[in-house]
Structure formats: C-alpha cells, structure tokens
Design a binder for these strands. Sequence first.
DNA 1: AAACTAATCGAAATCGGTTTCGGTAGTACG
DNA 2: CGTACTACCGAAACCGATTTCGATTAGTTT
Lengths: 340, 340
Amino acid sequence: MHVNIKKIAEMAGVSVSTVSKIMNNYNDVSEKTKQRVLEIIEQTGYSPSNSAKTLATKKSNLIGVIFAGELNVEITHPFFVEVLNSFKKQMGVLGYDLIFFSNEKFVSGGDYYSRCVHFHVDGCVIISGEKMEPAIHDLDMSTIPCIGVDLELKGTKSGYVMSDNYQIASKVVEHLYLLGHRELGFIGSTGDSGISSQREAGYMKAIESFGLTLNPGWFVHGDDFFEPSGYAAMQQLIERGPLPKAVFAASDLLALGAIRALKEHGLRIPEDVAVIGCDDIEACKYTSPTLTTIRQNKERLGVLAAHMLFDLINNQSEGGSFVVEPALIIRESCGSALRS
Amino acid sequence: MHVNIKKIAEMAGVSVSTVSKIMNNYNDVSEKTKQRVLEIIEQTGYSPSNSAKTLATKKSNLIGVIFAGELNVEITHPFFVEVLNSFKKQMGVLGYDLIFFSNEKFVSGGDYYSRCVHFHVDGCVIISGEKMEPAIHDLDMSTIPCIGVDLELKGTKSGYVMSDNYQIASKVVEHLYLLGHRELGFIGSTGDSGISSQREAGYMKAIESFGLTLNPGWFVHGDDFFEPSGYAAMQQLIERGPLPKAVFAASDLLALGAIRALKEHGLRIPEDVAVIGCDDIEACKYTSPTLTTIRQNKERLGVLAAHMLFDLINNQSEGGSFVVEPALIIRESCGSALRS
DNA sequence: AAACTAATCGAAATCGGTTTCGGTAGTACG
DNA sequence: CGTACTACCGAAACCGATTTCGATTAGTTT
C-alpha cells in the first residue's frame, strides 16, 4: 500500500501532528527532528493526499475551467486555447492546478456551481464569448471567486478580462478607411454573442464617426465563431447583391470562411473585397492571402486572468475587470497600408 | 455555510448512512424515505464533497493529463488538442473529469507519479510524441493506469494509442510516386522524437521498396514539430543545393514552415517542390496552397484512449495498444492525383 | 401465538490529513 | 531552590463522506 502521514510518523518516531507541522512550516518543531523527518519524506517520496488536505483545510489548490455557452467553444478553439494556456502556466507558477469540467449533461451534479463545490475548487475561470446564461449567473453570484474570459462577470467575487472591443472596431474602420474603403460590411457571430455584439456596435459607431453610410444589408451573422459560419455568411452577402468593398469579421475563423466563399466565386482578395479578421490566431500567417487582423494579446489576457483570480482567492481584491489593448496586424488580405 | 451530508440527514430525519446509501444506489432503503431524501437533495442542490468521497473510496473520478517531453507540446498544439478534446468528451460520458498538471518545476511534488498519487487520480493520459523520459517511466511502471498518446507505454497497467506511422509513410511515398516524384526529401522533428523517427524509418523503407534511391542529404531535422522548425529545415535544404522534387514533413506545421521558406525563395508549390504534411490539422484547408496531408483520426484516437483507460481502471483489460489507420487527404500542395 | 425471514435503518469505524490546546522538559532568573 | 518562561511535542477533535454489521420492525409461516 501507499505511504501516508502515519507511516512517516512511525518511521521517524514522532507523532502525526509533528509531521503535519513540518509539512506546513509551523515553527514549533526543533530543527533536529525536522531534518530527520524531512529525510524520510524524501526517501519515501511521500506526497500528502490532496483529498485529505482539502477536506481538512477547505482549500484544494484547484481551479475549475468552464467552457460555457452553446457556440461550441472548446479547448480546440484557437483563440481561447492560447489564453487558457497562458492562464494555466501562470496559475502553475502560483501553485494551482486546473480541473476541466466536462460539460456532458450526463455527468452528475449538472450545474456549474455545484460542480465547483463538489470539487472544492478555490476559484474558477469561465470562458465564453457569449452573453450570460443562468447556470453561469448562479456561479457568478456565489462566493466562489470567478474570472470571465470574454464574459462580463459582475459578482462581488468575480471579475473578467477581455480586449477592448470598441477599440478593435475603431482600429478596423480606421485602417479600412485609410486604405480607401468606404463601403463596409460585417460578419459576426449570433446576436447573442456578447463580444460579437460589442464589436458590431463599435463598428457601427466608428463607421458613422468617419462619416460613412451604414448599410444594414451588409451586416450578417453566422451561428458561431467558426469557419463554416463565415463561409455561410459570405454566401448570404454574395447572394444579396452588390458586395461591400471591405468586410470585418468578428473572428479570424469567420474571416477565413468568408475568404473561402469569395474565392469560390472567383473574387480576389483584397482587390475585389478586402477582409479583416480579429484575434490573430496562428493560422493567419499561413493562409492565402495572409490575414490582416486585430491582434488580441492572448498571453496577457491569460496572465491577467490568473492574477485577478489569485487576488480574489486571497481576498486581496474586490474584483473588477481588465481590458487589454488590441493591435492592428497588417498582412495581405486588405492590401498594403496607404500613407495618409 | 454549505450543505453537507449531515444537514441533509437532519432535514430528512434519517441517518447519515441512509443518505449515503441513497446517493450510492444501495437497495436497503425503502422507496418512501428514498423519495423524501431525494427531494431534499434536489431542493438544496446538495453535491457530495469529492474530497471526502475520494478519501473514503480511493476513487476520485479524476483523470490526470500530462504533457510530457521537451518539445513544447502543450494544449495549444493543434493536433494533440483535438485528440485531447475527443478524449475529454468521452471521459465525460464515462463519468470522469480531467485535471491538468501544470508542468512548472516550481510546483510541489515534482515528478508525475507523486503528482498522481497526490491527487488520487484514477488514471492518466500522457501526451508526448517523444521518446520515453525517466519521469514518465516511473509512472508507466506504477500501478496507476496510464494511456500514452503517441507514446509507447509498456507497463502492466499501461497502454497507448497512435496512428500507424509506417502506413503513414508508405501512403506518402505511394502518393508521391504516383504523382511522378522520384526525388524525395524529409523534414522531421528531433531524432529523439518517437513518432518522427517512426515516420522517417517507414519513409526510408518505403522509398527503397519503391526502388528509389535514398539521398541522406535530403533528410533534415528541426527542433520540434512547429512551424518555425519547418521553415528552418527547409532553409537548410535550400542552402545545401539541389532540392528534392517532393518533401514529406512529419507534421503539418513543419510542412507549413517549409512552404513559407520555399515561397520566400520564389519557388512554386507544387510545381517546383511538392510538399506533403501529416496530421490534417484545421489550418490545412486555409493555406495556400491547401495542404495535401495524411489525416490522423483524432477523434478516434481520443475515444480509443478513453475506452482503453476506462477498461484499465476497471481491470477489464491488460493494456496493450491500438493503432489507427491514417488516410491520405489530397489537396493542392502536391498537385492533383494522377491516374496510375 | 411463537418463530422465523426479509426489509429497513443507524452507530461507529475509517480514509489521511490539520489544528488546537495542554503537557513536559529544559533553561533562566530572582 | 522555587518559579516562570520557552521550546518542543502529542492527544484528540474534526473535515465529509463510505461501509460494515448489528438492531429493530414488519411480514409470513406454522
């Protein structure tokens, strides 16, 4: 069987309490016995049971990871997985491990909140990009520290990180404007999607502030943020009649889908239609044309999320939000930048 | 405070044991009290503490996920993340959640085996693509059920899944041969990489079995499976002198990097050099030219890994391995298929 | 009505830790 | 030498579940 604290205690000729104290840096243990016990721990490779520890302390050193929403955002999503990876690394440095809840409905428990108490997570990160749903709301309103990624959590023990979607939109319009485009279209996710809506609202606002006319017929929405939705959306646009000269897609994958549709119709990018995406996923560099896009600082989003969550867990923060700056990345899909 | 089994028992006017029995489908509790207790559980949203449960039963319903090796394979890797996602879904159906060990060295414990006992995982999946390393070896030899993905685990409680790398290689050679190519090059990961080596060995064997001559100068290795390594490798090939007419890259990302290098030198794909990848990641469809590749059945790999692990955990299997069939996916980067 | 069986329930030990609090030994001090 | 203080250690309660086994009750049989 496996070595536990009792065995260590026996081997060292001390009590269980003493071993525990050594493991937890109490200072009422003599240096001599401490060294003796530590040596035995080293030899046996003893590692205290996290379950027992959690049971006793109510701290699990575990962070729950939740992919919420119905847009099939999973760990395969090229944008979110990068944020998550950065988050994971940072949380690792802070001494936490991650537990991924499978969102199969079958699983016992069901709602996110009870999953969290079930596993005694110290906090959790919710990745979405959609508007709030009830199951998330319960968690948000609970005392469990939560950080939303692209999801605006408002609870007293919650916070969120996201890119400045209005700035994203205005950078897009500015860039397209300077390239000479005046007829601007938009491809978004469903109207339910929080960030897609923000980008759309910002886009419309920016279009007007540049004195351009806004054509509602050039605004079209897919089912999610993935490539096939972008393809379908552009098909719609093409069928509807005269195309805009430039299209802003709310994600790079949507942009890629749009480009595929355009290509199939023999249209050239950017000569016939310019396309600009959002996220700056890896694939942008390998496509043809390479994709001009707005980069979200995924690493920073992850690190910020980790630190906010850590502070929330340790009561060193009251929550709130961090909004990070996006950056225009000019590649080929909109043509080269003009001098203004 | 939070509701626990004792509170439920009090509220229902029964003992703790009875509540526990109801939660675990014992049959020595009357239907009447069962319903009453169940109702209270429903109302309160009670979910038993996983820590306490694990402590008592030695089953955690947790599967550890380990990214091993030094090639920076992380959850952002487009191939492995797809396998993992499929695995995660299937494990969810089987009633398990996943815990991701952060491989920051800082974290207490250190080696994988003690992390596993620390968290009482019921089993674990090790994702790598490299040769065995000592830390993994300990785990492999332990009594903890393990499944390797692209990693040949040999322990009595271990198993692994991977694609048939020899078949991958022979499909590549066959395809290139039928397209008329006789001068074949190879871009792989480091010599340490298990699967890259297998593909290389299979490739060489297939080249010879087709009666072609093998030019060692056309075989080059990068540092890992990522795009920049493919770029660097192709740079080497270009500098060395006369290029092969076709190159097989051990991963799609390597292929993409190779293509980037070729393009920069004004070379056309596939006219000047044909390039074929391996994995069939999403990006293959969006690149220019679109990438001909060998598809690994990622979903099936994940499902098989899950079922093997499940059987291992429940002592319904002695381990072993599953090798899944690859499939040639013809796109543009090698030209169109010829009729033989 | 006695005796036996089956159904139903609960007391208590256990899992592996943490933490409080009291006890003992040793040292310093007046 | 008595007292007080400090350093060091351990007994025991506790965290929230599971599981065994004995007790009680109800039902059935003779």
